[in-house]
């Protein structure tokens, strides 16, 4: 464990909590892409299957349980509790355009052709594109609430910090996870456009951010 990875995990946790609290306190999921949240729940489900078979550390186990619980709670709030506030018309991204390539690629590129490894690879590739429906929804509605942009900021920051973690681990322990690194870089690049808007607009104190 290093400071970059810890900061990344904290940033990830903060993002998930920001979104969950926003939905719970406003009792609405307007402007939130349920599809992205479903994809994130799928990412955690397929990545954390080793929860009961491999013990890394108490931290690892606890964080996996927390991420799974919070992501399923978010999906529950969107599709069950506050489903009448779910904006399905604007949440129209065709997720099959993400799932098919990701499934295909995880069968082509993996460390071992075993169910656990292919599913882990699937979760890595899926995470890189899971935010697409949310970014698409924001471009469609033309704006994002300030809280949603903070959610996206911490979500993008988490994987950027993981890249720093991979650089650190490469130089200190020769660790190099090619699949995670390539996918993590692609994922972070997707946020660059948003990061620019976030820094230039939201930091200026405007309540809403309108994407071009």
């Amino acid at each position: 464990m290093n400071v970059f990875r810890l900061a990344g995990d904290v940033s990830h946790l903060v993002a998930i909590i920001i979104l969950l609290l926003k939905i719970w306190r406003s009792r609405s999921c307007a402007g939130i892409s349920g599809k992205s949240q479903l994809l994130f729940a799928l990412v955690f489900t397929t990545r954390y299957l080793d929860l009961f078979t491999v013990y890394i550390s108490a931290y690892n186990t606890i964080m996996k349980v927390v991420f799974l619980a919070l992501s399923y709670a978010t999906v529950y709030l969107i599709y069950m509790r506050f489903r009448n506030t779910y904006d399905s018309e604007n949440d129209s991204f065709r997720v099959e355009f993400l799932l098919v390539p990701v499934i295909g690629l995880s069968f082509l590129e993996h460390y071992a052709f075993t169910p656990m490894e292919v599913l882990w690879t699937f979760s890595i590739f899926l995470e890189a594109v899971a935010i697409m429906p949310q970014l698409f929804m924001i471009t469609k509605t033309g704006e994002a609430e300030s809280i949603t942009t903070h959610y996206l900021f911490f979500l993008g920051l988490y994987r950027a910090l993981y890249i720093a973690n991979w650089v650190w681990r490469y130089h200190t322990e020769g660790f190099f996870d090619q699949i995670a690194v390539v996918s993590g870089v692609v994922q972070t690049i997707f946020y660059c456009d948003f990061f620019y808007l976030y820094v230039t607009k939201v930091v200026q104190g405007r309540s809403k951010m309108s994407l071009p």
Partner: peptide
């Protein structure tokens, strides 16, 4: 690339 023996990251 050094392939990780097990995935120790979240």
């Amino acid at each position: 690339s050094v392939e990780p023996l097990r995935h120790d990251e979240l």
